[in-house]
């Protein structure tokens, strides 16, 4: 049995301190790290240097998919596969296709937005390397929890902890995993 470091955890209770620390960590060149917060903190993503989300591309793909499904379905069934004359109305006209075009565009956008969100956030993942850490659990209550993973090139068990303490984090400690 041996223990390997998983990462370092530190707590902030004050939001401005957390943002300031995020900027310092970003500027120090850390890449594999995160701040877990109980609610979305505005500007914290920027302070951490998070790149702009590509989620809206998923949504747009959903819109295109939904719209073309709607048009294709109504055109093919009505004007190609089974032409049925109902009250002399056209087999396919864009006017009567609008409600379903609209609804399926919305549906496609919503489905792919949620699917994209789950994909980008890797949900569901019913496991987290820090999940048993008491500090980490506070992130859904009232604490801003910084985690810096051991995979980070700049990570060093002692150096990273010292840096976090200098930034004002409380309860800084190393999280380890026990390998069999």
């Amino acid at each position: 049995m041996s223990t390997t470091p998983v990462g370092v955890i530190g707590e902030f209770t004050e939001v401005n301190a957390a943002v300031a620390a995020a900027e310092k960590l970003r500027d120090a060149g850390y890449r594999s790290w995160d701040i877990h917060t109980p609610y979305p903190v505005h500007g914290l993503d920027k302070a951490m240097g998070v790149k702009r989300s590509i989620l809206s591309y998923f949504s747009f793909a959903g819109l295109v998919g939904g719209l073309s499904t709607a048009v294709g379905l109504q055109y093919w069934t009505g004007a190609v596969d089974y032409k049925l004359n109902i009250g002399g109305k056209g087999f396919f006209d864009w006017q009567f296709s609008v409600p379903i075009d609209f609804e399926l565009s919305i549906l496609g956008t919503a489905l792919l937005t949620v699917a994209g969100l789950f994909h980008l956030c890797r949900l569901p993942t019913w496991y987290n390397r820090y999940q048993d850490d008491e500090s980490f659990k506070k992130a859904t209550d009232d604490t801003f929890v910084v985690t810096i993973d051991s995979e980070d090139d700049r990570f060093s068990a002692d150096g990273t902890q010292t840096m976090l303490r200098q930034l004002g984090a409380a309860n800084v400690h190393l999280v380890t995993a026990t390998a069999e």
């Binding site: 995160d34 701040i35 917060t37 914290l44 993503d45 998070v50 569901p124 987290n128 992130a139």
Partner: peptide, 11 residues
């Protein structure tokens, strides 16, 4: 679903 409150996820 294993939500952790990660800022990257909040984004």
């Amino acid at each position: 679903l294993g939500w952790t409150g990660s800022t990257r996820h909040w984004h």
